[in-house]
């Protein structure tokens, strides 16, 4: 068993594009759920529209990537408005179910054979992200690697990662600025008790809408990075569990904190990849009984996702505030 390889793989996942995508999705969700208290269970819908908006604009309509990206973000914004107008007045649980349903509707429509001409339907869509990689300052030869051991990236990956983490930092800064302002204070008051906010003269609907739009667009950014990273989009990548993973990352790091979603996303991917690599190494060990090795073989990914589920349960049982959250604030919830 080579723990260097396991650690290297885990570190690569923790700082790679997947973690960036998850971090952005979680930052957006943090605005919805963490600060405003909106139980958005359809965050994947915003990611999906960001990814498909970009991909379809470039692949189907042949527009430039620099046009495609704003289109992806605009679609995420449009979803926030379309979803928000009718649903923001609903009870929290109903809002959760409507958002999950809306994201599923979009996924089914995008992935249907009727949509092949537009989105590629079940065949997925792919495009040439050359416009993005043309700007790549990293040498990108077949031999070029950045990092040590298995914790290494190609030049192309380095470019995605650099842009991605800069984006995460920028977005986090903006979120920090707007949340510590009186505007952010109103969001928190809505989370605590929206009738109280109303009685103090705050237009609760409009603030919720603003929160939904901002968090949705940040979710859309996650989708844009996803589309660039994979040079396309596949409807199967946008199932409801993506939203649940996002919640896992957010709750792991600590909801309603500034760094929580980012730390949570890094930790999420580190642990998930660590478990998967560990199991892969384990199943190759000679001393392991054959039956167990056969069982493990090929199931590493399934088990690591199962661990995500287990982690959610344990997290809520033993540290509901996440790694950076405040215990006292959490206890106030139970009242």
């Amino acid at each position: 068993m080579d723990f260097d390889i396991i650690f290297g793989n885990a570190a690569r996942a923790a700082f790679g594009p997947e973690a960036i995508i998850l971090a952005l999705a979680a930052i957006g969700l943090n605005i919805h759920f963490g600060f405003t208290g909106l139980l958005n269970f359809g965050q994947v819908g915003f990611i999906m529209l960001g990814a498909y908006g970009t991909s379809v604009a470039v692949a189907t309509f042949g527009w430039s990537l620099w046009v495609g990206i704003p289109i992806g973000l605009f679609l995420a914004l449009a979803l926030a408005v379309a979803l928000g107008i009718p649903t923001l007045r609903l009870h929290a649980v109903m809002f959760a179910i409507v958002t999950i349903a809306a994201a599923e509707i979009i996924r089914i429509l995008i992935g249907s054979t009727d949509a092949i001409g537009l989105t590629g339907g079940p065949l997925s869509v792919s495009f040439d992200a050359g416009a993005f990689f043309d700007l790549n300052p990293y040498a990108d030869g077949p031999q070029d690697r950045y990092g040590v051991g298995t914790f290494a990236f190609t030049g192309q990956q380095m470019w995605v990662i650099t842009v991605g983490w800069v984006l995460v930092a920028l977005v986090s800064l903006i979120v920090f600025l707007i949340i510590r302002s009186p505007w952010g204070r109103v969001l928190k008051s809505i989370r605590e008790d929206e009738d109280a906010a109303r009685s103090l003269g705050k237009n609760v609907f409009w603030y919720k809408m603003q929160a939904l739009m901002i968090g949705g667009v940040i979710g859309g950014m996650a989708g844009v990075i996803d589309a660039i990273k994979t040079s396309g989009a596949d409807p199967n990548g946008f199932r409801p569990q993506v939203t649940f993973y996002t919640y896992t990352a957010l709750l792991l790091g600590g909801a309603a904190t500034y760094m929580g979603p980012v730390l949570g996303a890094i930790l999420f991917w580190f642990l998930r990849e660590w478990i998967e690599s560990f199991l892969r190494q384990l199943s190759a060990e000679a001393w392991l009984p054959g039956a167990i090795a056969d069982f493990l073989e090929g199931s590493e990914g399934i088990i690591s996702v199962a661990m995500v589920g287990l982690a959610l349960v344990l997290l809520m049982l033993f540290r509901p505030q996440g790694i950076t959250g405040n215990r006292i604030e959490m206890q106030l919830d139970a009242r």
């Binding site: 649940f244 919640y247 199962a306 995500v308 589920g309 959610l312 349960v313």
Partner: peptide, 16 residues
């Protein structure tokens, strides 16, 4: 959230 975790866990176990 616990039920969501259980849901993920249960589904993965069935898959396993």
């Amino acid at each position: 959230v616990i039920t969501i975790g259980l849901s993920l866990l249960g589904r993965q176990l069935v898959q396993l």
